[in-house]
């Protein structure tokens, strides 16, 4: 046995910077590909001045406004239905549970475009709505493209949102329900004040995802003549045949809206992370 060699004293050393050769190479390749792609579009059969001209055309602006209105309205309906359905689903009452399960089954089980067409054509089933003899209206007068899109997209969204909300509520510790009951809360009060605020941390990321999905899903309402942005773009290119230019206009607007929504989601996430290591 020899005496162990003394360990070197490293207290005076600095840490050498790491060199990420791989990353630099990847960035170079990506920039090259982007440049090639950009050039292809620049010399391709696109009249960019039409893109610029139609970007702020009144019909396009109306379209994007309608897209936004429909997104907010259907998500509001979807969240209201989703929270209600998730609450019913977790109720001790078997009738409420059954209704919730049936609703999710029906609306998740059929394509949303089919539901839109059914709502829009409701007059074929029920020519008049209301209470017969007291007050009725013609269905075609009520079921405008806007109302049909709102009901079709919102009710369908509620079925999906209820599962997101339910997952969030299941993620909250059962000790929280018990502590809430122990201070005299009823089940609904405990859900509203204690469980849902905590579930929001789990709910917000997938809900943000659904919100962004809805911005684009509203384009389906173009098939029932709702004048959201894609429908507006189509109306214009049916007249002037600038198909690609107008599709690019619509794409730019979708990207712009979604670029604004993403940081909003992060703000919400931070708000509901109150009291955890991540938030304040």
């Amino acid at each position: 046995m020899t005496a162990p060699a003394p360990l070197p004293d490293i207290s005076g050393y600095s840490i050498a910077p790491e060199r990420h050769w791989g990353r630099w190479l990847a960035v170079a390749v990506i920039l090259l590909l982007l440049a090639a792609l950009g050039r292809a579009f620049a010399v391709g059969m696109i009249e960019w001045r039409y893109v610029g001209a139609f970007l702020t055309a009144p019909a396009i602006l109306t379209g994007i406004a309608n897209t936004l209105v429909m997104t907010v309205a259907t998500m509001a309906l979807g969240i209201a239905l989703g929270v209600t359905t998730a609450t019913m689903r977790m109720s001790p009452n078997p009738v409420l549970r059954g209704v919730a399960v049936g609703y999710v089954w029906l609306f998740r089980g059929t394509p949303v475009i089919l539901q839109l067409l059914l709502w829009f054509n409701l007059a074929l089933i029920f020519p008049r709505l209301g209470i017969s003899g007291v007050w009725t209206v013609r269905t075609v007068d009520v079921m405008t493209p806007m109302v049909a899109a709102f009901l079709g997209l919102g009710i369908n969204q509620g079925a999906y949102t209820s599962e997101v909300v339910r997952a969030g509520m299941l993620a909250v510790d059962t000790g929280q329900y018990e502590a809430a009951k122990a201070i005299g809360m009823t089940r609904l009060l405990a859900l509203r004040r204690i469980v849902l605020p905590q579930a929001m941390r789990v709910i917000i990321p997938p809900l943000g995802n659904e919100f962004i999905g809805m911005v684009k899903l509203t384009s389906l309402a173009s098939v029932i003549q709702y004048t959201e942005i894609l429908h507006s773009a189509q109306n214009i290119y049916y007249a002037n045949s600038r198909v690609i230019e107008l599709l690019i206009v619509a794409a730019i607007w979708y990207l712009a809206v979604i670029s604004v929504l993403t940081p909003l989601q992060m703000l919400l996430e931070r708000h509901f992370a109150r009291g955890t290591a991540g938030g304040r």
């Binding site: 000790g175 929280q176 502590a179 809430a180 009951k181 122990a182 201070i183 005299g184 905590q198 009291g275």
Partner: peptide
Amino acid sequence: ARQRLATGMVFQRFNLFPHLTALENIVEG
């Protein structure tokens, strides 16, 4: 729920509401 008000319960694992401050936890009831 009203009958439960006659008893106060303290749990082994505290079960404080994590999204509320100490004051808000107590004020909630």
